[in-house]
Design a protein around this nucleic acid. Sequence first.
DNA 1: GAGGTCTGTCATCGG
DNA 2: CACCGATGACAGACC
Length: 634
Amino acid sequence: MRHMKKYFTEGLIQFTILLSLIGVRVDVDTYLNGYLSPLIEIDGGPSSAFIQTPFHLYRDTGAGHQVHLKCPELDYYFTSRRLLNEVRALGSPARFPTHVSAWLVHVVPDDGSDVGEPHDQSGDSGNDEVNTEDLRDEVENERRTGEGLVLSVSQDQTISRPCCVDEELSKEDTLLNQENEDDEVKNERGQEEISLDSVSQLTRSSALEQEDSSSNALPPPISGLELTPQWQDFLSEFDDFDSQRISDLEVDLPNPISYNVSLQDAMVTRGDSTSCRPTFSRAPLFRLESTNSSHSDPSQSSAGALPSSLFSLMGNSSLNETSHLQVGGYLDEAVFEQINMMDLGTIDPRMLDCLQGDMDTPWLEDSDSGLSLESSSRSPASPSTSSDSFCEDEGEATGYSSEVESLSSKEGACAATYRHWSPVNLNDNIWHDHTYSVPQAQNSTSTGWVQPIKVIKQEVMSEDEVEPEEMSRDEQRVQALGLPFSAFQIVNMRVDDFLEMLDRQNLSVSEVMLLRDVRRRGKNKLAAQNCRKRKLDAIMSLQGEVEVLAAQREALLRQKSHTSKALFSATEHFQSLSRTVLSHLRDEYGQPLSYEHYALQCSANGRVVVQPRTNTTSRTMTGVKTKRKKDKKP
DNA sequence: GAGGTCTGTCATCGG
DNA sequence: CACCGATGACAGACC
């Protein structure tokens, strides 16, 4: 269970390795002169337990593309593979690659060196201890000689040696010696990463579903590769490359050295393994072979893994983890800012006043800002006040008078308004306080409006002390006609009542036209007041929206800046590690690949291709696909 | 007196 | 077709 836990916690990180460096395949047949067999073959092919025959040695021979077993001792690692499969069987969250192995094999002219045996850095068998010791010695030698991971062996001997791709080889001994002690810490760290990678795991789980079905029949992974935190950070950042950038890398150069890290190749069915398992007699000249079981289908890897990489990288590195958290923080911040703006910016201050218990403020009247009929047009005979709030029964001055009616009292108005108000849509929820004191000129009965204007006038004069010069022109005109109705009443009475009045008063055509104009102007005045009020409300609402959007813009700009920094950091890290990887690779002459002449290109399907840099650009696309020599199985 | 604001009014459109 | 509400435009009053 201990291993299983570690597999589970560090699975995603190691899975990411396949996207970059594991299972690198180098085809050199087109590299040299188009005739030569692959010079470098780093293959994470169908079975990482098998390697291909060095093509440059068996050039033009039938055995040139045979697949050989790296090492019989690799079967020890099948046990861990089975354990992994068991873990995967528990559920999708556990269906993640756990161990990744890489071998860098280098054949140099015979110098009497020993044949390296594959070693498992995480093996637990007795042989593993011996192999570990050998590995330590070799690492020490390489560290001293600066040869990196390349082994020097006799030319006719096959070298297959597991090695850590990590550039910090000096830490390998510590990892090997303190593996047990580190398990505790790794598990804790892995648990944290898993908690952060839950989203990415879910996104990848679907892709791994299919892989899981086939992985049960697959051979166990060859060996586990303990990733150092640096590589973990790099691999997580490596996923940060945008899809465009990655897609550009899919096209191979005319003479590429392809490092095939197809994840499908990393998954080999047992049947394939058994059928294709040969005895390895010769090692490829250059081989960096890896084992991983995270992918089963390159198409899936290209279609599903990369999009999900955006999620995966959030938790794989502290950088992206921070980014994720900060992005979420920004989003939360924006959301809360918007909520605050909507809540505070769109609530009518009058409602706040009402909620605060400021009932002394004249609710309807003050809110109108001059929308009541107490202006110049206010009829002296009109007893209307804000508290009257009457309107025509038939719905004239509609749309807003209904609100007034519902607001019989300030408390009730406030409560009703607050209940029905919702800041969901700013445009649709403009709180129109169109309490324009639409006067209720008469009762609902048809006879109610027949009220002597003199009585009304007396009431108005007694209450409001309205001077005659303050009457509107229409009011004066109506009074000049000697009608028993005020202009206010004429404006607000119902249509049928108004027509009945016109019929009963035996008015002349000019007088009828005057009264109609008075009524029309009065209603238009109210309509204009309503319109202006709505316009002001709309403006205020839009101002609130502007503030919210400005806050969102600031948040997005901060997020963009943070993302740019993260991408830049990941790019630099990738370049640095690319130099390290290339320095560990050798050409046919045993010379390390120069970063100035070669570059690692990562495609969307999980391949990592070593391409020679061109004068123009290292990403020149030629459309020539890299041959996959591993497909040429005997 | 100029400029801004408020208000009333007209014309117009659409329901 | 009449009526009415909404709204832009204009003008006058006011500060």
